[in-house]
């Protein structure tokens, strides 16, 4: 079984939930509730980053999402045409921002959590940027019963 579907929205934060819920529905036959939550959160964080940091909150730009449903995995690509993320940002984000001292209020993060959450919630994350587009690829493996 291999199928793929493409969806797109305008770069408007109000429209992110619509796309996230559509992708969650596409994955419902393949993933359990925790994995569905993980995919939905990762996708929302990825699109928020594109709109807030890539397009600097400007509406009217395109955000595309391609969902590939494969036998053992779900591959989600978030594609944009903004200025690319700086090299190394994605890798550095895997440093856990959640190792704060919970007794020190000033240390608790208010932002900068999105990419780390994507790393924590997906099995593979990679970012490819070329002259025509930026593509963040997120993979969730489908757990087999008993494995």
């Amino acid at each position: 079984m291999v199928a793929s579907i493409s969806l797109s929205i305008d770069s408007d934060l109000d429209k992110v939930s619509l796309l996230a819920r559509a992708v969650r529905a596409l994955c419902e036959d393949f993933l359990g509730p925790d994995d569905l939550d993980a995919v939905e959160l990762s996708l929302v964080e990825a699109i928020n980053n594109v709109i807030k940091h890539g397009y600097h909150g400007e509406k009217g730009k395109d955000v595309q999402v391609a969902v590939g449903l494969q036998a053992d995995r779900i591959v989600i690509d978030v594609i944009d045409h903004a200025l690319p993320m700086a090299a190394g940002v994605l890798e550095q984000a895997s440093d856990d921002p959640f190792t704060f001292d919970e007794t020190d209020l000033a240390e608790i993060p208010e932002g900068g959590m999105g990419l780390a959450l994507i790393h924590m919630n997906m099995d593979e994350v990679e970012y490819v940027s070329n002259e025509s587009e930026n593509r963040l690829r997120m993979v969730k493996r489908i757990a087999r019963p008993g494995s």
């Binding site: 939930s17 929302v44 608790i108 993060p109 208010e110």
Partner: peptide
């Protein structure tokens, strides 16, 4: 039903505003 890191960050900001 759903909260993202922006929502969570807003909560942390309110906690900081409240103070110790």
């Amino acid at each position: 039903e759903f909260i993202d890191s922006s929502g969570l960050g807003a909560l942390v900001s309110c906690l900081k505003r409240l103070g110790p």
